[in-house]
Amino acid sequence: MFLADYIKSVYNGVTSLLKGMRMTGYYFVHPKEIITQQYPEVKQVLPERFRGEVVMTHNENNEHRCTGCTACELACPNATIKVVTRFDITPDGKKKKALETFVYHLELCTLCNLCIAACPTDAIRMAQTFEHSVYDRKLLTKRLDKPGSKLMEGVE
């Protein structure tokens, strides 16, 4: 029957459309389904593994754990980290490599976590900060070791 098929197709089409409208209508009258988070007022607590930027851990005596071995610099795929080292003379007269400055280019970093995986002494870690925008690109080049900090006792 041509006419029956025609009417049936119209009916099926209209019901499929109405089903869709019922769904959007449901969401319209149920504002509690809204998933928007109002960002500056509501700040999500980020998980501890979140990779925001690389930071160097310092303890309360302003001591870090970086021995200046440059493993992170070698592991970095895009030259984000530059470790400047110096040679200290130990009491028994030997030369020992030590950290001078730890330069970190946040603008180059892809947050791949390879430097942290490579670090043998857990000197660096990822911080959970994410609001990195600045007006001057130079501000993104950071020195991670705090001024006057020295190597923690017992870290080789």
Partner: peptide, 10 residues
């Protein structure tokens, strides 16, 4: 506003 509420936005 209508579109936002249907799209579960604010």
């Amino acid at each position: 506003k209508v579109s936002a509420y249907m799209q579960i936005r604010l």
